[in-house]
Amino acid sequence: MGLSGGGRRRGRGRAGAPMSEINVTPLVDVMLVLLIIFMVTAPLLKAAVPVELPDSRAKAMAEEANQVTITIQTDGTVYLEEDALAPGELADRLAAIPDGPDGKKPLVTLRADKALDYGRVMDVMGELNRAGFNAISLVTGTGGGISPGSGQ
Rank of each mutant, 00 (worst) to 15 (best):
M122W: 06
Q67R: 13
L3H: 14
L128V: 02
V33C: 05
D117F: 07
T71R: 06
A131C: 07
K114G: 08
A131L: 08
L35S: 01
L3C: 15
T25F: 13
A42I: 00
L85P: 03
L3F: 14
G16P: 09
D83E: 14
L27A: 15
R111G: 04
L32E: 00
T71I: 10
R8H: 11
G119P: 01
G88C: 10
K59I: 05
G149Y: 14
E81W: 07
G144V: 02
L110G: 00
K105N: 04
L116C: 07
R130H: 09
A15E: 15
G143Y: 01
P87A: 14
K104H: 14
P50T: 07
G88W: 07
D123H: 02
R10Y: 11
S150P: 08
T71L: 07
I146H: 01
D123V: 05
R57H: 02
K59F: 00
R9F: 14
Q152C: 12
G16A: 14
R8N: 11
Q67N: 15
V68T: 10
T77D: 06
L138T: 14
P101F: 04
L116H: 06
A58E: 07
L107I: 11
E82R: 12
L80R: 03
A95W: 01
A48H: 09
G7N: 11
P101Q: 09
T77N: 10
A95V: 00
E52P: 00
G103S: 07
G151F: 09
R12T: 15
A62R: 02
V28M: 11
V108W: 04
L116G: 00
G2R: 12
L35M: 05
S20V: 04
P18Q: 09
G11P: 01
L116F: 06
A95H: 07
F38Q: 02
G144S: 09
R57W: 03
A86M: 12
E64A: 13
G119K: 10
A42L: 00
L85I: 09
V51Q: 05
D99V: 02
G145P: 08
Q73F: 04
V121Q: 14
F38H: 00
R57P: 01
G119I: 08
R111K: 09
D123E: 11
Q152I: 11
V121D: 05
M125E: 13
N66V: 06
L94N: 01
A112S: 12
R57T: 13
S56R: 04
L90I: 10
T71Y: 08
V51I: 06
G2P: 13
S137D: 15
K104Q: 11
A48K: 13
D55V: 06
E89N: 10
L110R: 02
A112V: 15
T69Y: 05
E21R: 01
K59L: 14
G2A: 12
V51F: 00
V121S: 12
G103M: 00
T69I: 06
K59W: 01
M31I: 05
V40R: 08
V33G: 11
Q152K: 14
G132H: 06
T142M: 03
A17S: 14
G141A: 12
M19K: 07
P26T: 03
L138I: 15
M61Y: 00
I97S: 05
A15G: 13
G119A: 14
V124P: 03
T77Q: 12
T71F: 03
K105C: 08
Q67W: 05
Q73K: 10
T41N: 02
K114H: 13
D102L: 04
